[in-house]
Design a protein around this nucleic acid. Structure first.
Lengths: 245, 245
DNA sequence: CGGTCACTTGATCGTCTTCAATACCAGTGG
DNA sequence: CCACTGGTATTGAAGACGATCAAGTGACCG
């Protein structure tokens, strides 16, 4: 729908000269398969793009010309039905790649939740790069296998879990996600709206809101403000998420 | 759960000598990235295994020592919750690969629906093979990307479609699947039980049965016998599957 | 022939959806 | 300063879709 809103990215001079060598996201990313001596080769085919919240930078059905690698922020990936029903298939954070399609069109849309930065490659150039760096192809395969495992877990959630179990699963997963970067904290950010959570879990906004209220009244969590969650009893949430109770 | 039931596979002598060179599944499989001159190398690390219907040959949570490539038959892949709720995440037919896990344990179980044959590789040996044949790694990546697209489509189904839309989607997908091998036919096999369909679509057996009855009474399909489906109005089913009506 | 299994069909139930009202906050402009 | 707006969230009441419970059929098989 909306065009990609690019914002001129003001990089400090050192980073501008060797963006990949100084990339914060490198340790989390498939790019780390490319050794330091060859980073210039990688940087040569990379465009750094930053988009504002709400910007749709991949649209389902459009020609899949690019491959993306998120280096900052969070994006939601989703599919739509003609009548507007929406399913969010995942949230892409730092290190996630997007657009690994075989088809010539994207199978999903992507919209930034926060100010989000990513590297963009033409798929053609990526292919040439992969031919020269099989290690990166191996890393991509590894990452795709992980995505596949996560997708199967989500199918279990969507097909067989109750609303309560879905919310517990989601919160535990968000906790784990936040722990990947910094220290694990009981208090962590929740950058998506109730609507996004609902569309991710196959529920309605109202059910998400009600269920969170219940979990709060049970003392398992708290929601001190928008976009923030505090997890009081992770063990109990893990049990609920796993279908016990 | 149940052990792998292997049946001694009686291959004709020619095939036994060069199993990969004469493999029916090769055109559908990732192995086709390995050129004829090197097939002996592939065959050297391959075990051909045949299992009977009902045999569970991959169990969730067990050490992921092998990689599988289905060459005949159909298997269901599924995950379980502790209380027995089951979600089938996919059906693996000829050419599908299984066990591309990064984790050291399988993330799902696999059970044969029909007499099913597959090639089995140790993951260690597969890794060595892939290092020597980057083209096969590329094919694997391609296949994984396709699986990922299918998984996202299934999430849309499980999260947002009605029972009627789910059945229509499923039947259309089965039609397409059957058309991949032979000529597209209005009459095609449906090797899974109602229970399997239910666990794949996130429904109950009863809802699957009722919904099929409705589609039959509307003249869109017929079910002349067990395991056989006749599709009378594919266009209408495609519309229903897409959420129109 | 009794047993099991897969499937169908009916009646009732319950979880989640839908519809609706209200509150809250940030931004905007009179 | 405060009314107005649009977006987000919460909560209540009513409704619906699919689940659950239950009965019955037909096929296959020891």
């Amino acid at each position: 729908m909306s065009a990609v809103l690019t914002r001129p990215v003001a990089l400090d001079p050192q980073v501008a000269a060797e963006p990949c060598a100084h990339c914060d996201a490198r340790p989390h990313s498939v790019c780390n398969a490319i050794g330091d001596p060859y980073l210039a080769r990688l940087a040569a085919v990379t465009q750094i793009i930053e988009v504002l919240p709400g910007s749709t930078f991949i649209s389902e059905g459009e020609p899949a010309n690019h491959f993306f690698n998120v280096t900052r922020g969070t994006a939601k990936l989703f599919k739509l039905l003609p009548d507007g029903r929406r399913q969010i298939t995942g949230f892409a954070t730092v290190g996630h790649f997007l657009g690994l399609a075989v088809s010539d069109t994207y199978a999903f849309s992507a919209e930034a939740l926060e100010p989000t930065r990513f590297c963009r490659f033409s798929r053609h150039k990526l292919r040439l790069l992969l031919n020269d760096f099989p290690a990166m192809e191996a890393r991509l395969l590894e990452a795709a296998a992980n995505e596949l495992v996560a997708a199967q877990e989500q199918m279990l959630l969507l097909g067989r879990k109750t609303a309560r179990e879905r919310l517990a699963s989601f919160l535990v997963a968000q906790y784990r996600q936040s722990a990947l970067n910094g220290q694990p904290r009981a208090r962590f950010p929740l950058p998506m709206t109730r609507g996004d959570i609902a569309d991710y879990l196959g529920l309605t906004i109202e059910t998400v809101s009600r269920t969170l209220t219940v979990l709060r009244k049970e003392g398992l969590i708290d929601i001190p403000g928008p976009g923030v969650l505090v997890m009081y009893d992770r063990a109990a949430l893990e049990r609920v998420a796993g279908g016990l109770n």
